[in-house]
């Protein structure tokens, strides 16, 4: 994918959270957004995922601009997947039903086709034995992996992940990151906000450093981590990498 963001502005009753953000990536498979809290990473990701409309500015993937109306955005959201930090799953549905809901209600599969579709992925990620459980009976890592699967089984063009490991215990982070790593290896396109710098460095084709509502720096992992030329980035990295 090749992402072009031009003069993006976003604000919710207050100062601008995105303040003329501009970014043009190369043709990448995995783009990672990093930066300080409150810098605008999540706001940017929500716009990219078609969940929020910006106040001004444009976004285009592979030259195709995002729709500007809610109906168009809903159609767009059906072609991508989104995973939030936490509380993704519907607590009244079993893990399996969480996976089936979008397939049956949004993508028009029959119940049988949908079950067929999710069986393989559930097994591949060792979640088949937990399929009948409600989210409350799953560990944080299992919940997040089911949420990633739910985004994946609709065969999206790309997946957006908003700090998918931030709400997890360290031991569960590993299993979720490993799954994301496998997706990358399998060719899935990813846009991910994360504080896991080591992981970002491993999977990202390009990293964008978002701070104060703009892109403070942008390049390959090596560019950013090994030779951080921007003082803001250097300062951030020395804080998070110790």
């Amino acid at each position: 994918m090749q992402l072009t963001v031009c003069d993006l502005v976003q604000r919710y009753d207050g100062p601008a959270i995105l303040d003329g953000l501009t970014l043009a990536t190369g043709d990448v498979q995995a783009l990672v957004l990093v930066g300080p809290s409150g810098g605008g990473k999540t706001t940017l990701l929500r716009i990219l995922a078609g969940l929020d409309r910006p106040v001004a500015g444009t976004v285009a993937f592979d030259g195709v601009p995002l729709p500007a109306d809610e109906a168009g955005l809903r159609a767009y959201r059906r072609t991508v997947g989104t995973v939030f930090q936490a509380y993704n799953l519907f607590p009244h549905l079993s893990a399996l039903d969480n996976l089936l809901l979008p397939l049956v209600r949004v993508h028009g599969l029959s119940e049988v086709e949908a079950r067929e579709r999710v069986r393989g992925p559930l097994e591949r990620f060792h979640l088949a034995e937990h399929a009948a459980k409600r989210p409350a009976a799953l560990s944080g890592g299992q919940k997040q992996r089911i949420a990633i699967l739910r985004a994946l089984v609709v065969q999206p063009r790309r997946i957006f992940l908003d700090e998918p490991t931030s709400a997890l215990d360290p031991e569960m982070r590993g299993e979720v990151l490993e799954m994301i790593g496998e997706l990358k290896a399998a060719g899935t396109q990813l846009v991910m906000v994360t504080h896991e710098m080591g992981f970002a460095r491993r999977v990202a084709d390009e990293i964008a450093f978002v701070a104060d509502g703009r892109i403070a720096a942008h390049g390959t992992a090596d560019d950013l981590f090994t030779r951080p030329s921007v003082p803001r980035v250097r300062e951030f990295l020395t804080k998070v990498l110790v």
Partner: peptide
């Protein structure tokens, strides 16, 4: 919680579907 509506929107449910399959059952 608002996150439930977010999740419903993210998987592409319409507002009516969101009420029917996500909000009302809870």
């Amino acid at each position: 919680p608002a996150t439930q509506r977010d999740s419903a929107r993210a998987i592409g449910l319409t507002p009516v579907q969101t009420l029917r399959f996500v909000i009302i059952p809870q």
